[in-house]
């Protein structure tokens, strides 16, 4: 099976590592992807207002392209995954949004949320399997104490994202374990870093980041991993005096698979 791949805008510029190491790792794992032609930016945030349709159209066009190819849509960036999943859910369950969006888009066939949106981590867990992944590791990250930083976008709202337990997630810890490293569970791994306000209110973002870093260090993390460019920026640039190294999870994956 070939997966349609949706990198999203930031992975082409500031978050190239997230993208490049994902591609290399997938090749090593024998999973075939094809970047979606003419994909459009998902919009960055999911529009919460019930009457916002226009801001969802770019996501709908992307989802419809994937449907026409008959392939699942593979996402990597937390924000893109969040937005695409929720817009897809709207098209599946919200008759009003579905009707108005389809009337405007006038695709050959109406889009009703048929595309399966799958996050890279879910692919590793459910398609590759963490046991198989562990077998393919050539360069185990032995002795490294790594904390997973989930943030909010992958987990909440859990009834729509259905990604993991929103209060006690485990998929990234299982991933870290598969790479041969030691996952460190720390309480603030599912608390928000303040992504949206990092442009308008740096001091508020700093307060959030400091709590996350303190919690991670208290539990013994030497390094954090994330799937989100916004979190990466915030944790790196808006941290106060106390900092911690943050990497994209795909970089660790490539390292362990020996393709970095």
């Amino acid at each position: 099976m070939i997966y349609s791949y949706y990198p999203g805008c930031t992975l082409k510029t500031k978050a190239k590592e997230l993208d490049i190491y994902a591609r290399k790792s997938l090749e090593a794992l024998g999973i075939e992807i094809e970047e979606l032609d003419n994909w459009q930016c998902c919009g960055g945030v999911y529009p919460l207002a019930k009457d916002e349709i226009a801001t969802k159209l770019s996501s709908i066009r992307t989802l419809n392209q994937a449907k026409e190819l008959g392939r699942p849509l593979l996402t990597l960036c937390s924000a893109c995954h969040h937005v695409l999943t929720r817009v897809n859910n709207d098209m599946k369950t919200n008759g009003d949004i579905n009707m108005r969006a389809n009337n405007y888009c006038a695709f050959d066939e109406p889009y009703n949320g048929e595309t399966q949106v799958i996050h890279f981590l879910t692919l590793l867990k459910e398609v590759v399997g963490f046991d198989n992944l562990a077998k393919k590791v050539v360069n185990p990250l032995k002795g490294r104490k790594i904390g997973a930083y989930y943030g909010c976008l992958l987990l909440r709202p859990s009834n729509e994202l259905a990604f993991d337990d929103p209060e006690n997630p485990s998929i990234l810890e299982d991933f870290i374990k598969a790479l041969g490293a030691t996952p460190v569970v720390y309480p603030f791994r599912n608390e928000c870093c303040g992504g949206y306000i990092s442009v308008t209110n740096k001091s508020q973002a700093t307060k959030n980041v400091d709590k996350i870093v303190a919690s991670a260090k208290y539990k013994g993390c030497e390094q954090l991993i994330t799937a989100c460019p916004l979190c990466m920026y915030n944790l790196n640039e808006n941290a106060g005096a106390d900092k911690i190294e943050v990497k994209y999870f795909t970089e660790l994956l490539a390292e362990a698979l020996g393709v970095k």
Binding site: T13, K14, G43, A79, Y196, V199, T200, P229, L230
Partner: peptide, 28 residues
Amino acid sequence: NYLDANDIPAIVDEQIPQQALVSAFRKF
């Protein structure tokens, strides 16, 4: 509007992902 495009050059730094700007505009 809470955020004006003219404010951006002063805010933006080398590392800021455009995603942050897109999000801020969408929100504000």
